[in-house]
Write a protein that binds this DNA or RNA. Structure first.
Lengths: 190, 190, 190, 190
DNA sequence: CAATAACCGAGACGGTACGTCACGTCTTAGC
DNA sequence: GCTAAGACGTGACGTACCGTCTCGGTTATTG
């Protein structure tokens, strides 16, 4: 768990904090998740290793803090009022997020770690970035009664196919987001 | 890449090979993927470290070799001829595989690594255990013309929702495989 | 070359340093030079391997640091004023040093390595333990003008015969240090 | 100890034997004693490692066999009848042997190993290349009665100073073999 | 306005796994 | 029965990062 600021004494250096978060972002993009180490982060940020350890327990926590804001922004769609357009745009945004974005790379790394690291899984629990964003777009795109009581299910059916194909290494170019949207709506509309 | 047996000299020890694969299986279940090391595998298998390095370059390769056979077996459904029954059984098997099975834990660990390790991603490319098993059950459950030309898509729509929910840590108890099957068929049947 | 203490950060542990030097001494006497390894030194000293590597590059450097002080002490003769007595005592001390002493075993091992290891030769260059001690005793035993300008030569003629016989495995019991001293003086006296 | 040829079966390959000895010579000159390994010798000689192990127990034995003949040749002086000339020539040959010659490098490496390896010391015992050659030249250069009963001593006084200086890394250019010869003779002549 | 308390950098510490190398032994097939 | 080939167990190599610790030095708040 992240360290807690004391009430007295020298205050935490905001400069060090942001330097560390930026260093993690940079390192993730440059050398990949596996090569992101506490040692490397500290050196890149121009900060002592102890300072990193003082405020974060795992590199997953740093990575989450470093990429969560960007991730939410990239998955937020401005609704147009047309459900086909909105859902199609969302699936396109999701695909870009998972394949091209730095924040998405962080998310995939964390999700990957969570598959075999209970601590990371616990950290991610209640931080369902994709699920939250999908629920948000569904709430404006569909009439409330349509998915009442089955939001997790509807979310899974919306994003699941895309999610599965990308995580299994399929070519994202092959995805037809509009067709997927229409098939999704075919079930929940009429 | 895995070493290649020479035509001359002392032949490879089959005993060592199976001891290593079993050791990986055991260690994965006992200490988790992160704590599986070449050193640990060798000691557990009663084999020299060099012998492990000689035949495999990464622990991902060993794990894949150790769990692929079991994985395929666990995802193979004996068709009854009733498509609802068969697809429902498949989704149940997939859920068990991903949540309870040792082979499934290996698969999830590999898939997780693949998200941030290009080498593992390459290794898994063309080894789509879930996709292959889903395609197989679809081939016997649906009339060929129904999914002609859209097999990857149909596969993704069948397994994607379940896959997404489990990998994101949702409770597998909440999944209703029969309902999911009916919704899937609703699109491809009539 | 030996590491250099930094001006900042945690200071070097003197306890570790002396533990390492003693461990080398002990190991050299117990298992011999060839079996002295960084790993063994670290374990014997109760120190991490990295700590040994941090401060020394080769085991020759550790050995030199561990035995140089003892070596000088064992080869230092307190002059009596009688040149025959002093030089005879020196040759006896040299013989004991080369055959019985732990420090002498270290010296012989280093000299041996220097014959086929350029790095060790360079390390020993300017650390002529025998030559220095011989020059010191000659300086007090002979009138300065006698060996003026030919010190290295005189040193070599004093210690060379003994040195040659011992390094070639001859029995040190056969050596007559008094007779050797008299023959040496016969040339430089009258 | 070297292996012993059997009376029956396939005879030992002379081709392999000489290939190994030449490989040792070459490797010693190219990469130095420390880097001479059984593995390296076998690969260089185009021979299996087992073949090397079958016939020699240690690399010291191979090296000795490979360089002893050359060593003796390089230290053999053709006497002219003039003792000053002969002994001076011998000391010059000894210096060249110890500093420039391949065989001499082998000798120095073996002598070095013998200082901290009992097995090598035992191997060299009774193979006193320098001592034998020095005794030979003394036998023809001095009247027999001069050194009667004190050959080892005379040998040590002849070669010891030169031996000491070279093994301790002194510059061989500084040696004046003629002057050393004259000082040596001054004691044993008149 | 000092004392205190927590921060910060630097870097050494004991660990542990890494991937490589050479060791000496063994087990094949071929000559 | 020698030979080439090469796998085997063993163990040291030198490196990297782990998480902890001990320094000297730097800010803020508090008495």
């Amino acid at each position: 768990m992240t360290g807690i600021a004391a009430k007295t004494g020298r205050p935490r250096s905001e400069q060090s904090r942001t330097a560390i978060l930026h260093a993690v972002d940079d390192l993730l993009a440059e050398v990949g998740y596996k090569a992101v180490t506490f040692k490397g982060i500290a050196e890149r940020a121009g900060v002592s290793r102890q300072t990193v350890y003082r405020w974060w327990d795992t590199k997953a926590e740093i990575l989450l803090e470093a990429s969560a804001v960007d991730a939410r922004a990239e998955l937020a769609i401005i609704p147009t009022g047309d459900r086909v357009t909105d859902l199609t745009a969302y699936l396109a945004a999701l695909t870009r997020f998972l394949t091209d974005s730095d924040a998405g790379a962080g998310y995939r790394a964390l999700l990957g770690e969570a598959q075999h690291d209970e601590a990371v899984a616990a950290l991610l629990h209640g931080t369902d970035i994709i699920g939250d964003s999908a629920a948000a777009i569904l709430a404006v795109a569909l009439p409330p009664e349509t998915i009442e009581g089955t939001v997790p299910q509807a979310v899974a059916e919306l994003v699941g196919p895309t999610f599965f194909r990308i995580l299994n290494g399929h070519d994202p170019e092959e995805l037809d987001h509009r067709a997927a949207t229409l098939r999704f709506l075919a079930r929940h509309n009429a």
